[in-house]
Each structure stands twice: as C-alpha cells, then as structure tokens.
Deep mutational scan, measured.
Amino acid sequence: MQIFVKTLTGKTITLEVEPSDTIENVKAKIQDKEGIPPDQQRLIFAGKQLEDGRTLSDYNIQKESTSHLVLR
C-alpha cells in the first residue's frame, strides 16, 4: 500500500509499505529515499509519535494515510 510522509519543508514522500511493516522499516525506507538517518527521524501520526518496534497496523495507518516527519 502507499502512504505519504510530509516533511517540515512541505515536501511529500510517497512510500510503498505493508501494514505489517514496523516503524523502523518505514524509517529505513525514508533513509533510502531521502538520506536521513533513522535516528534523526521522528514520525508523527494523528498527533502521536510512532515508536520503532510497533507496526503501521498498530497505529491504524491505512493506505494513503499521511504522517509527518520531524527531524531531531
């Protein structure tokens, strides 16, 4: 499924993911596309910070959901 990640600069990154993917996996995909190390990434969805060990389905992130990327 596709999800979108919006950066603070207003850029939207499109990612191909599975509901069973962990947040860690998603951060690795963002690193592949954008070159941002996962330890600098914070992903926010529905006002919550997403934890590495959880999956997209844990957070009820469905296709075409948009989460926000904040850099630390």
Score class of each variant (00 low, 15 high):
E24V: 07
L43R: 00
K6G: 04
K63Q: 13
T14Y: 08
Y59H: 03
I61H: 02
K33C: 07
T66M: 11
K11H: 12
R42L: 15
T9S: 13
D58Q: 07
L69I: 13
E51N: 06
T7A: 05
N25P: 00
R42P: 01
R72V: 15
L69Y: 02
V17S: 02
I30F: 02
A28H: 13
Q62C: 10
I44V: 10
E16K: 09
I23W: 02
E64G: 15
F4Q: 08
R42K: 12
L43S: 00
N60G: 15
K29A: 06
Q49L: 14
I30G: 00
D21G: 02
E64M: 12
T7S: 06
L71Q: 07
T7H: 05
E34K: 04
M1E: 02
I44Y: 15
K27S: 01
H68C: 13
N60I: 04
L56M: 04
L43K: 00
I13D: 00
I30N: 00
E16D: 12
Q49K: 10
K48N: 09
D32K: 13
G47M: 04
I23R: 00
L50G: 02
Q31D: 05
Y59W: 02
R72D: 12
E51V: 08
P19H: 06
K33P: 02
V5H: 01
Q31R: 12
R54L: 11
L71Y: 07
K11N: 08
M1N: 03
G10Q: 04
D52I: 05
P38D: 04
Y59C: 03
E64K: 06
P38M: 15
P19G: 07
F4P: 03
E64N: 14
F4M: 08
D21H: 05
T55Y: 06
P19V: 07
I13M: 05
L69M: 07
L50T: 03
G35Y: 03
V70D: 07
L71W: 06
G35C: 05
S57G: 10
I3L: 10
Q62E: 11
K33D: 03
D21K: 01
L8D: 12
K29R: 07
D32F: 12
L15I: 11
L56F: 03
L56H: 01
I13F: 09
D32C: 08
E18Q: 13
P38T: 14
S20T: 13
E24G: 13
T55H: 05
S65E: 08
H68I: 15
G10F: 04
D39T: 09
L69G: 02
P19C: 06
S65W: 09
T14R: 10
L56Q: 00
L50S: 01
D21A: 07
S57T: 08
A46M: 15
Y59R: 01
T9N: 12
M1C: 05
R42S: 12
L8M: 13
S20D: 12
K27I: 03
V17M: 04
T14P: 06
E18S: 15
E64H: 14
G53Q: 11
P37S: 09
D21C: 06
S65Y: 08
T12D: 04
I61R: 01
Q40T: 08
T9Y: 14
L56V: 07
Q2V: 15
G53E: 09
D32W: 10
G53H: 15
D58Y: 15
Y59S: 03
L15Q: 00
E18N: 13
L8E: 15
T14V: 13
F45G: 02
Q41A: 05
